[in-house]
Amino acid sequence: MVQGIALGAFNGAAIPKRVAPTQENPARSEELSLIQRAQAGDTSAYDELVRRHQQRIYATIYHMTSNHEDANDLAQETFIKAYQALKSFKGDSSFFTWVYRIAVNRTINFLKQRKHRAAMSLDDLDFNAEHDPDLVALVSDKTPRRDLGLAELQEKLNEAMQKLSETHRLVVTLHDIQGLPHEEIARIMDCNVGTVRSRLFYARQQLQAHLSDYIKH
């Protein structure tokens, strides 16, 4: 049975939301139509598929690499690879999960082949960051490092993320940043939900230790 995925919203970021498999989903059927056209060689249909998933794929790779240029290259390569392999896509999983798997595998291979950690090339914070209630609370008089600006906090956070192993960084990225449910992460990482939960717990502990100066206990 193919489980459909539709777009939802979480803290302003688009994330997938599971829908009942029996429910008629126009977005899902429209995507299937695009996939079939792309499989037949219609690049305009594939262009539309790329548009639908480009932000989340880019964001996942970016949070894994902390480098805009690497994320740009890997995101483009992911979609090119996906197009080349599109004929093998049978619809057993959603297109979203399938592309995610390609992106994740390519990114992890890239990070493992890279001998030395590359310099970070961070994206700028958007205008809403200064008004995010969570961040306002974090960078306030009550925080241990109230002199710390958001940009510095961003750098420290990315440094701490890069200290995690690839798999631990991935579960934090997919769950805590992108808001995917454990089950979806398990499908993407091809492991069971228990493994996802334990990796997430360990990764958070590690992050908390690395960022102890910036987090109240």
Partner: peptide, 30 residues
Amino acid sequence: ELRRLLALKRHEQPPPGYFTDFSAKVVARI
């Protein structure tokens, strides 16, 4: 507290207009 801190990551965005021609670049390469 860590969850709040990680919320910062969601505000990291690529340069404006980056996604405007992203798919066109991909299709051109294909």
